[in-house]
């Protein structure tokens, strides 16, 4: 049985749950857990004042219930175990996590999985800006792990990411893969402006039917059937992402870029219309 946190009432000021992770709570009693202090706004409050806590966290599973759009940093820094959010979650979910899994049965805010180093985040709804990206001033975004978003995402998806996989079932906004170092970003809907701007290496796949607005510093190589996408498809299915026929070996257009930099990145898309 998981440890269950039910939001007691609507929260006013935003709450930061950084450090409330399965590994930390595994050996604590309900009383000890309820006494843990978290920040609400700029005030420390007891966890038990915000949530009704029940269940048992010995198996490393936490469940959050309620509208947690104002609750931030869920699973931040977690190293293992599982967190399930039945509802929407706030910003910075899974930031810097190194292991374990976070499942959000709703939407997630900005900075989802920022600088994560391992593990899995699966969002059934949509996510905000800067998913899997680097924080301001940091050199690298996510360096390992997988982020699955069945809905859409905002801008700066995977900015400066170094490794790992991000799959988006819907659309993404501008500059996905901005200054990407390596890793893979797959977007199955439409894509905003300038995907891969400044990318050094890595893979961006945009499988929506609308033209991909690439920068003029990308060069077309032709149409190919990339085999590695079949392996990714199988891995996505294993992780519970809805099956995507786009990855089963159809012919795609390959672009190399961004030639303002190293130019060893690649963008795969279905149509070559609207490209430089």
């Amino acid at each position: 049985m998981p440890l269950i946190f039910r939001l007691a009432s609507a929260i006013g000021s935003p709450v930061r749950l950084g450090g409330i992770t399965p590994d930390r709570l595994r050996d604590m009693s309900l009383v000890e857990i309820a006494r843990l202090e978290v920040l609400q706004g700029n005030v420390s409050v007891a966890l038990g004042d915000l949530f009704r806590v029940s269940g048992d966290g010995a198996d490393g599973r936490l469940t959050f219930e309620g509208d947690l759009a104002g609750v931030h940093e869920i699973g931040r820094g977690m190293t293992g175990g599982e967190i399930v959010v039945r509802g929407s979650a706030g910003r910075h979910v899974g930031g810097g996590m190194t292991g374990g899994a976070i499942h959000i049965h709703g939407d997630a805010g900005d900075w989802l999985g920022c600088e994560m180093k391992g593990g899995l985040i699966h969002v059934r709804g949509s996510a905000g800006d800067h998913t899997g990206a680097a924080y301001a001033g940091s050199r690298r975004g996510m360096t390992e792990g997988t982020i699955l978003i069945e809905g859409s995402v905002g801008s700066h998806l995977g900015a400066s990411m170094r490794r790992g996989l991000v799959a988006v079932g819907g659309d993404c906004r501008d500059v996905a893969g901005l200054e990407m170092i390596a890793g893979s970003i797959l977007v199955f809907g439409a894509c905003g402006r300038a995907p891969g701007a400044g990318m050094r290496r890595g893979t961006i796949g945009v499988f929506g039917m609308s033209p991909v607005p690439l920068l003029p510093t990308f060069r077309a190589a032709g149409r190919f059937r990339p085999l590695f996408l079949r392996l990714i498809r199988r891995d996505l299915e294993r992780l519970g992402f809805p099956p995507r026929d786009e990855l089963s070996g159809e012919e795609l257009v390959l672009y190399h870029g961004d030639l303002v930099g190293l130019g060893k990145g690649e963008v795969w898309c279905r149509e070559d219309g609207g490209t430089p």
């Binding site: 490794r163 996989l165 893979s184 290496r201 893979t203 190919f224 059937r225 990339p226 085999l227 590695f228 392996l231 990714i232 199988r234 891995d235 294993r238 060893k264 690649e266």
Partner: peptide
């Protein structure tokens, strides 16, 4: 190009009919 997929690392080596994985 290397790709890590499902915990395993693969190499994509460009060849004349596409790439060897």
């Amino acid at each position: 190009v290397s790709k890590r997929i499902g915990g395993r690392r693969y190499w994509r080596i460009p060849v004349m009919d596409g790439e060897f994985l």
